[in-house]
Design a protein around this nucleic acid. Sequence first.
DNA 1: GAGCACTGC
Length: 702
Amino acid sequence: MPEEAGFPPAKKFRPSAGPPSRARSCPPGRRAVMLLAAGAGGGGGGRRQQPPLAQPSASPYPEAVEQQRRNLPIFQARGQLLAQLRNLDSAVLIGSGKTTQIPQYLYEAGIGRQAIIAVTQPRRVAAISLATRVSDEKRTELGKLVGYTVRFDDVTSDDTKIKFLTDGMLLREAISDCLLRKYSCIILDEAHERTLHTDVLFGVVKAAQKRRKELGKLPLKVLVMSATMDVDLFSQYFNGAPVLYLEGRQHPIQIFYTKQPQHDYLHAALVSVFQIHQEAPSSHDILVFLTGQEEIEAMSKTCRDIAKHLPDGCPSMLVLPLYASLPYAQQLRVFQRAPKGYRKVIISTNIAETSITITGIKYVVDTGMVKAKKYNPDSGLEVLAVQRVSKTQAWQRTGRAGREDSGICYRLYTEDEFEKFEKMTVPEIQRCNLASVMLQLLAMKIPNVLTFDFMSKPSPDHIQAAIAQLELLGALEHRDGQLTLTPMGRKMAAFPLEPKFAKTILLSPKFHCTEEILTIVALLSVDSILYNPPSRRDEVQSVRKKFVSSEGDHLTLLNVYRTFKNTGGNKEWCKENFVNSKNMMLVAEVRAQLRDICIKMSMPIVSSRGDTESIRRCLAHSLFTSTAELQPDGSYATTDTHQPVAIHPSSVLFHCKPACVVYTELLFTSKCYMRDLCVVDAEWLYEAAPDFFRKKLRTARN
DNA sequence: GAGCACTGC
């Protein structure tokens, strides 16, 4: 074992259930408990294992499919499970390998047949692949009995009874029907991830269930599914719902901690990788968790360099970086089998923790660090910082080593350090701007949004900051002591956008530039279309010159999009111009969706025909809360709070000194950076919001 | 003067 890291003897545990002391016994005091033996039966285990977009194949032998379903460990509990679920309003299910089977069991037993059974997922690919798989198992065409709904893609019909959908999509549906009348049963899967949308859905679904009961309508059954044991909160929240344990198949994983704390986790990771590399058979792949692109690219290069000079008899090494902004074709390489005699070493962000599942991983090296966003409601500032993972996250990483067979996990921290990690990751709802969430809840006509029944309540300051932001955008009014949406607010809620971007679109007809604003907002609402490989920086700069606008990033991006469209945009063009084609395609889809919404609202859609000033005026009028001015000493400060800020190095204005800018995002990394800037006239801002600036200037002087 | 974890509508 790596000497410098100083690993003591291993500990064994079973991954999906957390620490061993709790894995095999159920906490006392449960009303209903079910335990299944691990390791029984064949078949696929019911969990998605294929890479994104891989097509799960239908078995040519239908009987075989049915036999496979019967062989799943969960099948033994089917009768007992159904007997309980039939009579319950709500239940919490723990364990793995159940997402494909539970909805089928319910349907086959005639539970929830009066309407649709919904299964929500945090991610699109999961909703699509699960629906595909279940429709195969039912031997029906996808979109008939079993279908899915995700943004831009609705594969359902009047026959659909089992519907997989993203939780964000179900939340959208709740805006037009907050009682969710289409559904008899809602299964909230991957609840342990506590994504923003899942957390809001908890509240919306609970309210719908209660209201339907009061009105004597079709009852709504709610099942919460979690892969981890920390479910007390779920059970309490859903009125003490019973917890059912379903132990799935899992493989033992040995864990090694370091003897000493590691001050340099990158060096420790490097040492561990090469220790494993020199000892283990080449077919055993390694997955390393680091925090970000730069770190990962640097470590990849170092690994490749060292691997060139290893002694004879050592396997070759195939080093593969993995992070979200990596072009799709390069991401796919992690799924390919390495050539004979090569070991795959995948160096990844936490994208490999949940979003991407790679088969064949035998070793996990966990640095215990993650880059994550925090939000400060006082300043409205988002801080992106490297920090310790939570225990839950560490278990999740460890589990990645035991998906097909037993595995080994090296934790580059001591056991004492691990014990001091936070138990759970802070739910997203407590670390992000809540303006969108509040707008959506108000659009659902939920009575007291300020006291909404969240499972993990955000602080009152946090909610108040979101309300204040919506007020500034003109979305709210106080009527009869209640907060309600203005007509503007209702229109804003129709767009799948941050409220300030929805406002930008709604203001654009006044400036006769809706065509351009639709493009700009679409560009801002997806990940950057610009691909910046650090090793080819000079090349990127010279290619990008032709698009650059001295008026800022918004207009530069608009130029890239226009050129892409005018040259009949294809992947070849994207590659030559360092444009991420996947994101570019997405921009076109988003734009079309936003345009449709405008048309439904009977908004006039006109172009400014080359007049860029009107576009900048429109941005100034909608983003007036996010502005900064040049100070006498050459630095920048925000107009409202005089927070010192700097132009982000990715901006086309990085080397320029415009007097006044609007930005779309403030991000604190090593400094407080403004991202996506547009040059504006200070006068336009005062014109846009005279009250706001008068008040701000006064407080600033005091 | 020098940099951006991950989803989703």
